[in-house]
Design a protein around this nucleic acid. Sequence first.
RNA 1: GUGCCCAUAGCUCAAUCGGAUAGAGCAACGGCCUUCUAAGCCGUAGGUUGCAGGUUCGAUUCCUGCUGGGUGCGCCA
Length: 578
Amino acid sequence: MTLLQHLNSLVTSAFQQSDIPETYPTLISLSQRPEFGDYQVNGAMQAAKALKINPIALAEKVAAYLSKQPTIQSAQACKPGFINIFIEDQWLTEKLNNLYLSSRCGIKKASSPKTIVIDYSHPNIAKEMAVHHLRSTVIGDSIARLLFFLGHNVIRQNHIGDWGTQFGMLIALLESDEYDYIETPKLSDLENFYKAAKKRFDQDTDFAKKASSYVVKLQSNDPYFIKIWKKIVHISMEQNQQIYHRLNISLTAADVYGESAYNDLLPMIIKLLVKKELLTQHNGAKVVFLEHFKNKENEPMGVILQKSDGGYLYSTTDLAALYYRAHNLDATEIIYCVDARQTQHLEQIFSIAALANFIPKDIVLKHYEFGMMLDATGKPFKTRSGKTIKLSDLLDEAELRSTNILAERHSDLEEADRVKVINALAIGAIKYADLSKNRSSNYVFNWDSMLSFEGNTAPYLLYAYTRIQSIFRKSKHITVQDTDKFSLKETIERKMSLILIRFHDVLNKVEKEGKPHLLCSYLYELASHFMSFYESCPILNTNIDPEQQKSRLMLCDITAKTLKIGLDLLGIQTVDRM
RNA sequence: GUGCCCAUAGCUCAAUCGGAUAGAGCAACGGCCUUCUAAGCCGUAGGUUGCAGGUUCGAUUCCUGCUGGGUGCGCCA
């Protein structure tokens, strides 16, 4: 049981004893001020209001019951009807002991694991990955790591953009006279070819016709076209995989299941919708009209699922993907880590699926939306000349900046360690800057603040971790045994304990909300309290009481483990010295 | 035209289902290295939560209207 779950069970009993019906929530939260205790119960006020009884009298009744519980030192009713809970130190130290003995900081795997499909990253084939792929990739990967750590069956789905009209253009150009067929083009070539193909497609009608006919060939699985297409996809994904490796992203080739994979399912999707009488013929296209969405003329909005020329659209593919995930992957939950601008599109897909009874009703569909990356002026983050920034260029710059920072510090690390530190700082800074902000809003990208050692940044957390490791290196002569006890004499030691014990509740919250910034805030709170502890609670001084010394070493141990696990769930690697 | 999102300290961000005196960091100012990594710590100052109403014991949070910004809306994905 987590700390919050334990308190909740106590308060639930207290509510029962005070004749409060079960339907009223306990509303337990952290207290914001020390005089208000460790945790506070706000549910008594709400219940009193609804039951029309005196709130303070009810709060006193609940508090009286809570005060008798062995794990609670005291509970006090205050003013309108707050109840402030002070936790018993004895119980705290027992909990700490559990954390100390556990390699997972006491976090148990889910007793009834869910099968969760998570759709993230989804780069476009034939183009290099760019900054706009960063948020989906980084946030999605963190959520995937967390859900796996909590014991769920996680199925990563990289829904790559590997299908559609652009491939007709590209193949048409690759085999045209100027370019010939190139055996092993590089991805940067492909991107240039793509631009050239697009230009020609718009200007040359014969070429456009040819390209369109090639799309049909491709979609009908013509072996020659499939061969060229596969090569293009392969070249692209090899390069993307290198980016994933640099970024410490857990996606592999096995997670790739792109738009093309649903090609054969698409006619079936149309048939199913026809059968349900949801499709309408409109100017030759097959359309689903949704009453609760309006178009520009304020009429029900049509979602085109098959074009007048018979071609399918991304809505069709997304419906097929939903079908596949529900029926073939047996998902109990599907998470879409997709740009906030796709909200309406996804709502439409979910609506159509619901109307058509496409998927079991109890499947949970979640859109973990995120905002855009902006520059200092509040505009979308681009190069000076207004071009899209390539992800590989962004990572290069991060490494260059980290190298310079390390050089300024006159770090005396060996070369191999130096490279590791540069990498951890560079990648950690970029990922943490993104993950530490509430994902649903836009965020301002700033090199200097993300690479700073001050404030809520990856370097600060990494530095806190190395300080602990340094203590460990210098304390090898002290043997701590499993039977050693915690002693929480200083205020900061007790405060740190409460934070450490809260870890499991934080992870549960991040799982529930799908918001990694809650984990970041927590880790920063932990790290900054550790820094205070580090300054005010010496460990290696010779005049320290041995019992106190061991207790502090054990606190360091749990702190290090918590930081390590927490950062790992964010996809950020730690280093032992820097 | 219509849908969605956002507006909090000079800047970047928090704020648990409506809870107590709205919190951090940066920047500013003042302290702390013969003592475990000062890439750090301690302190001071900084707010009419865009505006106007409403709901109630209590509103940054919920409702209505307005202002400013972003973003989406039928044959691209």
